[in-house]
Structures are given as C-alpha cells and as structure tokens.
C-alpha cells in the first residue's frame, strides 16, 4: 500500500477507535453527569473528587491494568480482545469517562438555577424543567464530549499496550508517530503529528460552529 493509502487508513482507524470510545463514554458518562449535576445526594462531593482526580489518569497505568484484564490469563481473556481495535475502544472510553462525567456535572451545576425555576413557573414538571437545564448546558456538554474525544485520539499508552501497534489492524496515528520517531523517520513522524493536530482542530472547530445552530434547534 502507498504512503498516502497507509496514512488514510491509519487516520480513519484513529477516528473510528476514538470516535467509538467518545460515543461509549458519552452514552455512559452523560446520564451519570446529568444525575450528579441535577440531584443532591450523600457522598456527592467524594464522588466528584474521585472523577475529577481520574481525569488525569496516567494512560500507561490504565493500559497496564487493562492489559492484565484482557490478557489470555486475565478475567476477560476469554473474549480475546487484546490487540484488537475493540480493546482500544474500551480502554480509551474508560480513560475519558471521568472527563465526560466531571465536565457534564460541572456545566449542569453552573446553569443559572433560575432557568429551572423559570421552566417550573411556566408550567413545566420536574422532568421538563430538567430538560430545559440540559438544553442550556448543551455547550458545556459538547465541550465535555469533544475534550474526551481529543484526549482519546491523542493518547498513546492505552493504544500501544492494548492495541500493540499492529500494522493494518491496530496502528493509529499516535502509535505510528511513536514508531516512526524511534525508527529515526522524524519527517514522517512530524507529518503524522501534523495530521493528528489538524484533525483535532478541525473537529473541535466544526463542533463549536455547529453548537449554536444545534442549541437553537434543541428548543424547537
């Protein structure tokens, strides 16, 4: 395969793996973040502290733990996930889950409490008032998801330890950059890094531009 062909394949795989990880983390993290942001319960502060702390989880440490879990002799070894893109998806989604939860909680908590009151005084029940708060938090929730995606696509530890950097199967942009640099192919490494950075910037800028329109549409 040509260099361009390889580059396109690696880029698409990076997008797929990190996109799936972001989707999975959003599906799990959003309801948890919403619950923590809208409700008051015991041990809320402790839980928030834990999730905030896990936002800075070392990727290599997480990769090592999950390597042991997914390895043949590990508890989930029977699924034979190690060195597959799905292991990377699971690993990255665990990595970014605290980011999605923490930022979602934070953004919902910072919506003006009068928004909920306003909805209630206009006849909304608690559920509809909660939905109004969520609509108001949309920008922050989008930021949580895009921050999670950016962290996933730019991390190396989990991708390397759970994917193994197998060409044509688990090689993604970050593992390819690390490999080419160790091989002494600095120019190629720099080219791949430029692609990665451009990708992150384009995706985040597109999301920001789309945010206002989507927010408007949410009130339809």
């Amino acid at each position: 395969m040509s260099l361009i062909g390889d580059l396109v394949e690696i880029t698409l795989r990076s997008l797929f793996v990190s996109g799936m990880a972001a989707a999975l983390a959003t599906a799990i993290g959003l309801p948890i973040g919403m619950f923590m942001g809208l409700k008051k319960f015991r041990a809320q502060h402790v839980l928030k502290g834990i999730f905030n702390g896990l936002m800075a989880m070392p990727t290599v440490a997480l990769g090592l733990v999950l390597y042991l879990v997914f390895s043949r002799s590990g508890p989930l070894g029977i699924f034979e996930l190690l060195y597959t893109p799905w292991a990377m998806v699971i690993g990255q989604s665990i990595l970014i889950l605290p980011i999605v939860i923490s930022l979602t909680t934070e953004t919902i908590e910072h919506v003006d409490p009068k928004i909920r009151e306003l909805a209630l005084t206009l006849g909304a029940d608690e559920k509809a008032a909660g939905a109004a708060v969520l609509r108001e938090s949309f920008g922050g929730i989008l930021l949580a998801v895009s921050a999670g995606f950016s962290r996933a696509i730019s991390e190396l530890g989990v991708a390397l330890m759970l994917g193994g950097n197998i060409i044509g199967i688990t090689r993604v942009l970050t593992t390819a950059i690390a490999l080419e640099t160790t091989r002494g192919e600095i120019a190629l490494g720099l080219g791949l890094a430029t692609v990665l950075l451009s990708l992150m910037l384009i995706i985040n800028m597109t999301l920001r531009v789309a945010e206002k329109r989507v927010r408007w549409w949410l009130w339809e």
């Binding site: 003006d112 009068k114 928004i115 306003l118 609509r135 927010r215």
Partner: peptide
Amino acid sequence: FQTPIHFGTS
C-alpha cells in the same frame, strides 16, 4: 422575575 431570565433561544 425582577431580573429577567430567558432561555438561550429566540
């Protein structure tokens, strides 16, 4: 309310 509050829409 004394300080008007509005949803972030039209």
